[in-house]
């Protein structure tokens, strides 16, 4: 409940944040603080300095599909024009008070394997806009999440925005999760995005979370959905594929064993795809 000492710097711009990061090796970024402050309170992590990027106006706005990294979950949940899976997942992170402070960028940069948004952003093929001050780069979701609490972000870089495509008519997405009864993090989270043209699925993307070290994309389920009408039977058949497709080594704990999570991956993929298909058909 009592963090150890650290220095605190407040950046007024992305450039200043990058500069501060360079000046203070070992410093961490602070957005809403809902990943880092809990760790600091328990002294599970220590930092020499925090660089507060939470007030940078550019990072706090949603423009079309471009979501500033410091937008809160509540902001994302309430925003119009974003894919349904994203608003759905954002509205189920933690609880209202957590959503009022926790940020999308902070959450994905922390890359907890059980968090909701990485799974959704992977399914939506989101693009991660990264800055180092003067230079910038864009990383696709599939390359952004690299491991347990690990991302493509390098020393001195900061995530400035996450870009998702607006859902065109015929496209639908959804997120479904099996919650940890204590923390409400996902023991299994599944996100799906499907597109239907002339009654047939022409594009599908499916990702799961809570199962592996980081958000994981299912190619086989997505592949099996293509060319189907996304009726209950084909969704059910396609969803079964994830069970064998998942790697051998899955996460497990006292709340849900690896075996159970594997079995549940099918259930929640099916639920997510079913809901996504219903939205696509609307």
């Amino acid at each position: 409940m009592y963090p150890s000492s650290f220095e605190y710097y407040r950046a007024e711009s992305v450039r200043e944040a990058a500069k501060l990061l360079k000046q203070h090796p070992g410093a961490k970024l602070l957005a809403g603080g809902h990943s880092i402050i809990p760790l600091l309170k328990l002294r599970q992590t220590e930092v020499s300095a925090l660089i507060d990027i939470g007030r940078i106006a550019d990072l706090r706005a949603i423009n079309g599909g471009m979501i500033g990294a410091c937008c809160t979950y509540a902001q994302v949940a309430a925003a119009g024009g974003l894919p349904a899976a994203l608003t759905e997942a954002a509205s189920h992170v933690g609880d209202p008070a957590v959503r009022a402070r926790g940020t999308i960028g902070g959450g994905v940069a922390h890359a907890d394997p059980a968090s909701d948004l990485p799974t959704v952003l992977l399914a939506l093929n989101a693009k991660f806009h990264i800055s180092k001050g003067r230079t910038a780069r864009v990383v696709p979701a599939i390359k952004f999440f690299t491991g347990l609490y690990e991302t493509a972000l390098k020393e001195g870089e900061l995530l400035v925005a996450i870009e998702v495509d607006a859902e065109a008519r015929g496209t639908g997405s959804a997120y479904a999760k099996l919650e940890n009864p204590a923390s409400r993090y996902a023991m299994v989270g599944a996100a799906a995005s499907v597109t239907i043209v002339n009654g047939v699925c022409t594009d599908a993307s499916v990702a799961v979370g809570g199962l592996t070290t980081h958000a994981w994309r299912s190619k086989r389920v997505a592949g099996a959905l293509l060319e189907t009408t996304l009726d209950a039977d084909s969704i059910s058949k396609a969803s079964k594929r994830i069970v064998k497709e998942l790697p051998d080594d899955l996460l497990g704990d006292m709340h849900a064993s690896a075996d159970y999570r594997r079995a549940m991956s099918q259930v929640f993929v099916e639920r997510a795809v079913t809901a996504a298909a219903a939205r696509a058909k609307k």
């Binding site: 328990l42 940890n180 009864p181 204590a182 923390s183 006292m254 709340h255």
Partner: peptide
């Protein structure tokens, strides 16, 4: 104690 916090002890 594995369930040593409210993150792990469900209530």
């Amino acid at each position: 104690l594995l369930s040593g916090s409210m993150m792990d002890y469900a209530m």
